[in-house]
């Protein structure tokens, strides 16, 4: 049951032009633009800027992709009656939530791989096979809290309110998290705030991998903590949205 629900979710998104453009095409274009703006230098830590920006943009694409692809459709399905229709089938509530999560994670993979591929092929980013695997693995698994956040937003808000709120949330996360302007360029206070946000810890796992340090435990724990907290919130918000009062 769960597998066929996930398959359905993926099938409908792949046929959705909005997903193909915003979810897959957009992060790639943004990366290529940014990579050319930042040029060929290195960071203070001696990492090629092209690789650093590649990680930032892959992370940005994953955050915006999971949020946009989860929150909007979810709010829409609640309002349009598709969700109640699922609720009167044997498909249980937890399967719907898990199905959404697995679907969203699967759908975010292409954009991540495309950005990495573009980095390797057009920007001369060179990493070991182990680094590539660790990078993609960390960014993929680390996207869970953003899917959960999308479900929270989609459960609590009406469809017309979802888009602006998603956009503001997403921009807030990536800017504060240092995905657009590195945290090293921020003041002391901003930097301490950045380090507890899910977006910074998420991207930092990637930055650390390309610098040859592996995935730092504090980052992984922060992301896992956010995943747990937002996951619980998502379940509560789902219950509220499908209230059986």
């Amino acid at each position: 049951m769960l597998a066929s629900y996930v398959r359905l979710e993926i099938l409908r998104m792949v046929r959705n032009r909005r997903y193909l453009i915003l979810g897959i095409g957009f992060p790639l274009v943004i990366y290529l633009l940014n990579a050319n703006v930042f040029g060929k230098g290195t960071t203070d830590g001696g990492v090629a800027l092209s690789a650093y920006v590649m990680v930032s943009m892959a992370a940005y694409g994953a955050i915006s992709g999971t949020l946009v692809n989860t929150a909007g459709p979810w709010a829409q399905e609640r309002a349009s009656g598709w969700l109640p229709q699922l609720q009167v089938t044997p498909l249980r509530g937890w399967m719907i939530i898990v199905g959404k999560l697995v679907g969203a994670l699967t759908l975010v993979l292409p954009s991540m791989l495309l950005v990495c591929l573009a980095g390797a092929l057009t920007q001369g980013v060179s990493l070991s096979a182990g680094q590539w695997a660790a990078l993609v693995g960390a960014l993929w698994a680390g996207a869970v809290p953003f899917v959960a956040l999308g479900l929270v937003v989609g459960s609590l808000l009406r469809p017309d309110a979802v888009q602006p709120v998603t956009m503001i949330t997403m921009l807030g996360l990536v800017i504060v998290g240092g995905l657009w302007f590195p945290v090293s360029a921020m003041g002391e206070t901003m930097r301490s705030i950045a380090e507890v946000t899910p977006a910074y810890s998420y991207a930092d796992m990637g930055w650390s991998v390309i610098a040859g340090h592996g995935v730092p435990l504090p980052d992984a724990l922060t992301v896992a903590g956010w995943a747990a907290a937002l996951g619980v919130l998502a379940v509560l918000a789902y219950r509220r949205a499908t209230v059986r009062a």
Partner: peptide, 20 residues
């Protein structure tokens, strides 16, 4: 009854997934 698949229903409102 719903979880066991013994009930089917057509609700008043319920859009279909447009892409399918």
């Amino acid at each position: 009854a719903v979880a066991r698949g013994r009930v089917g229903a057509m609700l008043q409102q319920g859009e279909l997934m447009p892409e399918l």
